[in-house]
């Protein structure tokens, strides 16, 4: 009984390891090649799908999150008479944590799931097999531009998230609650360091972009090509990406901002 259980656990671990290996091989195979003559065009196409189409959701969420931070920060700090520090709080929370994490979660839901479903459908309708028969490697043609587009898009979306969030906080704290505008920006500028805070946030964004896009493409590329298989793969993309984003966020935070 015990032996059986151990055996099951062992084979599961092996299975996970082998699929991790397969995912790594897929990533390397798709990237270790020069883009073809129309590579830029394909990349632009994917930047549109992955980046531009995620813009609105990022913009709106960032606005609301900035406003909530402004409101919460104000009510918390006003008790200590330090409400002018609200700018510092909004900016640091956003730049270091919330912008990369929330943007990556939204990105996984919006772009990641779409990538998985798209690749799964291409597989189900034999488009990938068909490419192969025309002597075109689907990893280079389909997977690579989508991966690179994800890598470029998410950091840009995070930068925009930061800025929109900071102005959302400004709207609530300064315009509505009457914190002095100079104090809002001044405290923020004194507290936020470009290379320590903004850049570390962007490194997080880059790591999350790799995780989400990679997961999404691998799940789509290897899914069972039926409608049920595609829907399961899409769910897995969102679940795995979200867990990885949160887990890696802790690791990265510990490495970047210390405390452990």
């Amino acid at each position: 009984m015990m032996f059986n259980w151990l055996q099951k656990l062992g084979s599961r671990v092996l299975l996970r390891l082998s699929s991790l290996g397969a995912a790594l091989v897929m990533l390397l195979q798709s990237l270790l090649v020069l883009p073809g003559p129309r590579g830029w065009q394909r990349l632009t196409q994917q930047l549109y799908v992955v980046g531009v189409q995620s813009f609105i959701i990022i913009f709106v969420s960032a606005g609301f999150i900035g406003m909530v931070l402004g409101l919460q920060g104000y009510t918390l700090l006003v008790d200590y008479g330090s409400e002018q520090a609200v700018g510092q709080m909004v900016a640091l929370t956003l730049v270091r944590e919330l912008a990369p994490v929330v943007a990556a979660l939204l990105f996984a839901g919006r772009a990641g799931s779409a990538l998985t479903a798209e690749l799964g459908l291409m597989k189900a309708t034999e488009q990938l097999a068909s490419l192969e028969m025309f002597g075109v490697d689907p990893l280079h043609r389909i997977v690579a531009p989508r991966f690179i587009a994800g890598l470029i898009s998410l950091p840009i979306l995070v930068i925009i998230f930061n800025l929109v969030g900071v102005y959302g906080g400004h709207l609530v704290a300064v315009e509505w609650l009457g914190v002095h505008s100079g104090a809002y920006w001044g405290n923020m500028q004194a507290a936020v360091d470009f290379s320590d805070d903004v850049m570390n946030g962007l490194i997080k964004a880059l790591v999350f972009a790799t995780l989400v896009t990679w997961t999404a493409l691998y799940q789509g590329y290897t899914c069972v090509p039926t409608s049920q298989g595609i829907s399961e793969a899409t769910t897995r993309t969102v679940v795995y990406s979200s867990l990885m984003i949160l887990g890696f966020d802790f690791i990265l935070t510990a490495l970047m901002f210390g405390g452990l």
């Binding site: 980046g51 531009v52 840009i156 925009i160 930061n162 800025l163 900071v166 923020m188 360091d193």
Partner: peptide, 19 residues
């Protein structure tokens, strides 16, 4: 537009937010 917006936002972050 997205790329330009990203670069512009980074510039504003550098100047306005981190001073």
């Amino acid at each position: 537009g997205l790329l330009v917006a990203g670069i512009a936002a980074l510039l504003v972050l550098a100047l306005q937010v981190s001073g």
